[in-house]
């Protein structure tokens, strides 16, 4: 099962702010109440930004009653202020929602995504992808191989 499906990809976001961008991504996930996603993820952001530098952010949160992890990705040409650790605007936002259970796998999935996105070549591929399908295909299967 693919971790990221094309309907969870926003190829060209124009959201003016961090909050608008997360709201946009939340809207793309039809199966969960977008208000709940926005609330959970923004609450986590207030504890410390998930902008990890190099124009990448991985906002995340636990959602009650979720069966398996969900990933949604937005690409933003101009870049959005995410209060990232390097202060640079963010171009790639990877939203990760996981079930509300105490599972080490979620941490591993997050770490795996972070490692992938730290590779300059992977970021370039995302920025060059021409449509949602090819962008989604860049992401691995559900359970990371590591």
């Amino acid at each position: 099962m693919a971790l990221l499906t094309p309907d969870h990809v926003i190829v060209d976001s124009h959201a003016p702010t961090k909050k608008a961008m997360i709201a946009e991504l939340a809207q793309s996930i039809r199966s969960i109440d977008p208000d709940q996603v926005l609330e959970v993820v923004m609450a986590r952001e207030r504890l410390g930004s998930t902008g990890i530098g190099h124009g990448v952010a991985i906002p995340h949160g636990r959602i009650h009653d979720l069966l398996h992890p969900i990933v949604a990705v937005a690409r933003h040409r101009k870049g959005v202020d995410f209060e990232a650790i390097d202060g640079e605007p963010v171009h790639i936002v990877v939203l990760l929602l996981v079930p509300d259970d105490d599972n080490r796998q979620h941490l591993e999935l997050l770490a795996h995504l972070a490692r992938l996105l730290q590779q300059p070549s992977f970021r370039e591929q995302i920025m060059r992808a021409t449509d949602a399908e090819s962008l989604a295909a860049l992401f691995p299967e559900m359970i990371p191989a590591s």
Partner: peptide
Amino acid sequence: FEVQLEFF
């Protein structure tokens, strides 16, 4: 007091 990325 800011949490790191891995904080859920």
